[in-house]
Amino acid sequence: MSSTGRRVRAGRSVETLAVTRPSGPIAAAVEARWTDRGGLVAQLEDNLTSPLIGQGLRGVSALVHVVTPTDLLQDQAEDPVERRDRLVREVRTLVLACAASAVRQLVVVTAAQVYGALPDNPIPLPVDAPLRARGQVGLFADLVAVEEALAEAAPAYPGLRIAVLRPASVVGGVDTLTTRHFAAPRLLRVAGANPTWQFCHVDDLATAVEVTLDRRLAGGLPVASPGYLTQEEVEQRSGMRAVEVGASTAGAIAARLHRLGTLKSPESDLDFVMHPLVVDSVTLSAAGWTPAYDNDLCLAVLLEDVAAQTRGAPRFGARDAAALGAASAAVAVGATAAIMRRRRRKG
């Protein structure tokens, strides 16, 4: 079943957009942007794998399907095998429903992490960079599986224009692996690593969706604030102390916690705090998209969100490091606890 918002300005043409995950921050930002310009929004709240989902697309000209995770507790609470199966079935069902309902455009929101963070990544990645995210499990691997299913289904429906928005780490009212990274007492710094930090505010993502629809863009579209921050800049701007761990030690800790089932995130997620991943929103920029938030502002928003989420929460110790949900945070907590134990022994 769907519900439709009806804030329409006089003199503006009415066009209906459908959004999935309407209670999430990305869908909410997209809806606010669309209704502000006089459009209507149909909120798809039903089971997205149901063959009846097409009923909610009647009269809809475009669909925005939000896949990228923004509620870590909810996302990690679901059985990972069932979650992967559901996400893949959802995108396949929605492609078919769009084609059957005469929906002209489909915008799927995944994440820039599908490109993978690798030591040999150029800065920035080229527009046609392949998807090379490492690992077969985890939230980012799920997004790769969704994109693969979408690429497999799309050729059967040439009349449906499909765009895949791949935002950098999203900030602004979200709970993600990135926010959990900054929720640890100290930031993890992997010895010898060269990470980059690039963000995308939910409001900028909403305007990117708008430009994609207005300019009828298709294909893979990176979305991010221009440039990036280095590890040193992030530490300086955040005011957080860092704890340095060797790459092999960090990987071993994360892999063991994941193997024991106490950490939902796989060891491969450490790639994103070790290696560069910088995307260039050149296609969107050429179409007229301009982000309102740079990476410094995004980092400030992220830190405010983390402060709000952790206010009043107990400090995490080594025993419950995995409760933070992110591999990098778990390693940072464990390493910090080890340092404190050594200091106490020395007196």
Rank of each mutant, 00 (worst) to 15 (best):
H201M: 04
A163T: 07
N194D: 13
T16E: 15
N295G: 05
L299Y: 08
V66P: 03
D46S: 15
L217S: 04
L277A: 02
A193N: 07
L72P: 12
R7G: 10
A254K: 01
Y293F: 14
D71A: 15
D204C: 03
L17I: 11
D128W: 02
G227L: 00
V202C: 07
R344G: 02
P69T: 03
L297Y: 06
A329N: 06
V282P: 00
V202R: 10
A247M: 09
P314K: 04
E90W: 08
R84K: 07
L213Q: 03
S225M: 01
P226M: 01
P130N: 01
A102S: 15
Q76T: 15
A193M: 05
A77F: 13
A313Y: 05
P124N: 13
E235H: 13
R33W: 01
T35Y: 04
N47P: 09
M240C: 05
Y157C: 10
A42Q: 09
C98M: 07
A321G: 08
V301A: 11
L57V: 12
R237V: 03
N121H: 09
A307K: 02
V243E: 04
A156W: 07
C98R: 08
E82K: 14
R319N: 13
M274N: 09
P69W: 06
P222Q: 05
T336S: 14
A18L: 11
T110I: 05
A313N: 02
V273F: 09
G116M: 08
D280C: 01
V223N: 06
A27Q: 06
T249D: 12
D280F: 00
V30R: 00
T20F: 03
L217I: 10
F182V: 02
V164N: 09
P276H: 01
A163G: 06
G261Q: 12
A308V: 04
P51W: 07
R241H: 14
P266N: 08
L205H: 07
T4Q: 13
T179H: 07
G334H: 12
A156F: 11
A208L: 01
E15F: 10
V174M: 00
T20H: 02
P226Y: 00
E90N: 14
R215S: 14
L17W: 09
R237G: 03
A323R: 13
R259H: 14
T35Q: 10
